[in-house]
Amino acid sequence: MRVLAVVNRILKQFLHDKRTMALMILAPILVLTMLSLVFNGEELELKIGLIDVPSTVYTNMEQENVAFVKLDSDTDVNETLEQEDYDAILAFEQGESKLILEGSDPSINNVIIDNIKSEISPNTTSVSLSVEHLYGSQDLTTFDNIGPVLVGFFIFFFVFLIAGVSFLRERTQGTLERLLASPIKRWELVMGYVIGFGVFTTIQSSIIALYSIYVIDLMMEGSFFYVLIITVMIALSALTLGILLSAFAKNELQMIQFIPLVVVPQFFFAGLFKLETISDYLSWLGPLTPLYYGADALRDVMIRGQGLIEIWTNLVVLGGFSIVFIIMNIFALKKHRSI
């Protein structure tokens, strides 16, 4: 029953420490809200240049929020895109149409491509459209696409930090020593932490997931229940990793220094960038990070509307990470008491 005593104590500490509780729930919500506004805020005002567009096509080109401007035939396309505020230039050459995008903003790219395709195709079925980018590439994503990754990331981030710091404090304030001078077993202490924080992070994860889906209105094709399972599993791996790494930190500041080393890189591999496009020197790291599996599962459910059959391997791997971290934790405590 010592496990229960630890669980009880952790929950009481949370209840007394309102600021930490608020940080764990409100901070992710606030940041997600800001990001959703950053990505999906105002209507786009597009400016598209036209070169040698046949009048049959041109006369039909009228759209809300898009300004079409005719340019001279001998315009230097790249120079105009670089120096003026055009978002794209559509050029016709010998019946071939070519769309050159400014390209640095993925959300704009997709809108333009859709627009131009719908403008051209009803008129001239024979014309093929080739798309070029001045900057960037076609594979960049929008908020709906990275939203699930962000939800997973913020849960991971805050649970990692707070679990790590509170276990570290256990050491710096001397309570770990006192606990180890009592008959508590090492596994009882670790499991107490896992369950105590587990209860709290389940509540935290559900609030964040509910908010992201129903208030921020993230794309949600699958079942909310699966999202909850995935986020709790992400939180569990963050919690066990945080506790483990706290053994290597001397103080809170050093724990924070683990964030750029351990947490931020996971974000890169979590699907924000396609793994194939990441340099081979780095891309092998992806499958070694918990968030890689968590974010993939969240996308499967939220974007692709998939269910347990598609996500179970991800869940198993996430659970595997947690179990390995728990076992390593129990061993790491040997440093403080050999039995």
Partner: peptide, 9 residues
């Protein structure tokens, strides 16, 4: 121990 080893919250 020399440290008070208490949970301050």
């Amino acid at each position: 121990a020399q440290a008070d080893a208490l949970y301050h919250e």
